[in-house]
């Protein structure tokens, strides 16, 4: 079960800080980041891409679920 980071409702740059520490703590595998704002979604997406991670995005009822996958080479 992937770790879930609930960053819903946090103002800038809260979601990115939470996502960043979760990505860094991860050696390889998946984490899920939950956000509920367009801006937070864009920022977390950009952060994950900057680490070279794969990002899968699902939108549901105005909330976003970003599944971030880090492989061994992307440490």
């Amino acid at each position: 079960m992937a770790k879930v980071v609930d960053a819903r409702g946090l103002s800038c740059p809260g979601p990115v800080i939470k996502a960043k520490s979760a990505i860094e703590a991860l050696t390889s595998g998946e984490i899920v980041v939950l956000v509920d704002e367009e801006v937070a979604k864009e920022n977390v997406w950009r952060l994950a891409r900057s680490y070279g991670c794969m990002v899968d995005l699902v939108e549901e009822d105005g909330e976003f679920r970003l599944t971030i996958t880090k492989s061994d080479e992307q440490k």
Partner: peptide, 19 residues
Amino acid sequence: SRLCFAGGIRDMILFRSPH
């Protein structure tokens, strides 16, 4: 654009992001 004058410097310090 989400332009923000504090955010620009903040993100540079926090994430080294010049966005």
